[in-house]
């Protein structure tokens, strides 16, 4: 079976009398795929993430991970398969040193000490943090802490990794570090990757994008398809990146831009093509 994560008509609310935060959410994610979930603040993205590893349970509908419906009885098995990185770099750093933190998930799984001592440097290497094993968290930047968090997930070799706005609290440099790390990890492993963001710039490298709005799946498609809905995107509270705005602007001036350029390089390429045709 290639469908690995499935949401079937999932609805959820935090309290009995509160409005629904998710309404009939329905999508599936394939093995090895990189899916970006994007939406404005409060659109239900984190709720989706928490439903995926049993931190919350669906009110109606089904959430399946590797074919099994998540429930109270298999939640710890699911958590072994689904690694998660949260938004705040400080509030997920458990260990007093980098090594202790990377080992935390392995310790919870009862992995023998010798294996941990081998795995910790390996995982740190995958996020280019091998030189920091002895460091305490308060001597690390936000981006470095988030990379340690990713290493902690990699160390337990899950099938899925969810990054819930893992870059949102970082400066541009830290953000770049994390995006690169994620791209490397995705290329070098067969992890199914789910990155959650409210920044359209961060969906570019994903295979597929799910756009959330007010607790509903508003759109599903490739990054390029998403970018072709600029006006609608800004209507649901997402900041359209500069390149997409420029495309729009050029078109309105009668310049025929064929494809949706995703980044500066593609835009420059497109403009060269246009010029050579003129």
């Amino acid at each position: 079976m290639s469908e690995q994560v499935e949401f079937r008509n999932v609805s959820f609310r935090y309290q009995e009398d509160a409005p629904r935060v998710l309404k009939d959410v329905d999508f599936s994610i394939d093995r090895g795929e990189w899916v970006a979930i994007i939406g404005h603040n409060g659109s239900g993205k984190s709720t989706i993430a928490k439903l995926m590893n049993g931190l919350l349970f669906a009110e109606s509908g089904e959430v399946r991970v590797s074919g099994e419906v998540i429930g109270e009885e298999n939640v710890w098995d699911v958590r072994k398969q689904v690694g998660m990185v949260f938004q705040n770099p400080d509030n997920q750093f458990v260990g007093t040193t980098v090594r202790d933190d990377v080992a935390f998930g392995m310790e919870n799984r009862g992995i023998p000490r010798e294996d941990m001592l081998r795995k910790v440097p390996e995982s740190l290497k995958a996020v280019q943090m091998e030189a920091y094993e002895e460091h305490e968290p308060h001597r690390l930047s936000g981006g470095q802490k988030q990379r340690v968090a990713i290493a902690g997930v990699l160390a337990v070799a899950p099938d899925y990794m969810i990054l819930d706005e893992a870059t949102a609290m970082l400066d541009p440099k830290g953000r770049q570090e994390i995006l690169e790390t994620v791209r490397n990890v995705q290329q070098e492993s067969d992890l199914t990757l789910i990155t959650i963001t409210h920044d359209l710039n961060e969906i570019v490298a994903a295979d597929r994008v799910i756009v959330m709005n007010e607790g509903e799946v508003w759109f599903e498609g490739t990054p390029r398809e998403v970018f072709s809905h600029k006006e609608a995107l800004s209507r649901i509270g997402l900041d359209v990146p500069f390149v997409a705005k420029l495309t729009e602007e050029l078109r309105s001036q009668g310049v025929h831009v064929k494809e949706e350029p995703l980044n500066h390089e593609e835009m420059v390429e497109e403009l060269w093509n246009l010029r050579s045709k003129m």
Binding site: L55, W76, R79, K80, R99, G105, N108, L117
Partner: peptide, 19 residues
């Protein structure tokens, strides 16, 4: 932090190893 610990499989000291 409690949520992150739970997400990382923390279920108390039982069956835990230490680095």
């Amino acid at each position: 932090l409690a949520m992150a610990m739970e997400a990382r499989g923390y279920q108390g000291g039982e069956g835990r190893t230490k680095i």
